[in-house]
Amino acid sequence: MSNLFDLLVAGLATGAIYALVAVGFTLLWQTSQTINFAQGEFVMLPAFLMLAAMHVGAPFWLAIILGILLSMILLGLAFKLLLVDPMMRHGVLPLAIATMALAIGIKEAVKQFFSAEASPFPSIVPTGDVSILGHAVSLQSIGVLVVAILAVFGLTALLNRTSLGHQMQAAAQNPTVARIIGVPVERMILLTFLINAFLVALASLLITPIYLAKFSSGEVLGQAAFIAAIVGGFNQVRGAIAGGLLIGVLDNLAAAYVSTQYRAAVPMIFLIAVILFRPQGLLGRAEERTV
């Protein structure tokens, strides 16, 4: 039983990070129909930006700020202006393929400029344990969960409680009408790209101390977050959150109770089941798009 508790906590902590990344997937999809297959690499890169800042002598806190800012410029602004905007005109599929190419480009560039070997990354949460219900739970797991939950709550509050959030939702749901009533749709779309960049940088900061900074570490994350977004519902932020947590827990339970070799298959099987029986995702709503 204690084993189950440990697995749940570890699964939730990993799942919270999947959720952050998955939320980015749904945001980009809703506002600009972008399926970003480089999302995993977007999580890998900020850690290296922070490491680079530390190499030139910045203290860790400054490196975090610089890393997040640089991520927002590179993975938010530049990504939208240089890749999404020019490719968007050609449709969803060419854009998706372009993001796959971008993923390879980012990976190879990191390998070139840093190295193919993993690097250690400092943790923002101190190591140690606290006792919860008689179980020792690591501070790192709790820290990851708390930061991720705060980020998600912050985002939900922004979307639902502020005028800016309402404008973003309007831009996402019906750009034409939004434009007519005076919503600066283009700016709102750019804002979602910046938010996505912020979320992946945050995920990077939380996950890299555990997974280590390595050029290939985005592959697993990107795939898990993509599955999480589909399982939860690609068009709902809350769906992505639920999907992320669910995949995190499912992955850990599968590794413990099914088999380590087939752990990667279990979320996939779950994904197939969801697509077959509830194609809009667990919390998503069915939608039709004009083509």
């Binding site: 084993n3 699964g11 997974y211 697993v220 992955d251 590794a255 413990a256 380590t260 070799q261 752990r263």
Partner: peptide, 15 residues
Amino acid sequence: STEAGQADFAADVGK
């Protein structure tokens, strides 16, 4: 048994 390149060892350590 674990996989080459595996990132998450929470379940293995749990076992």
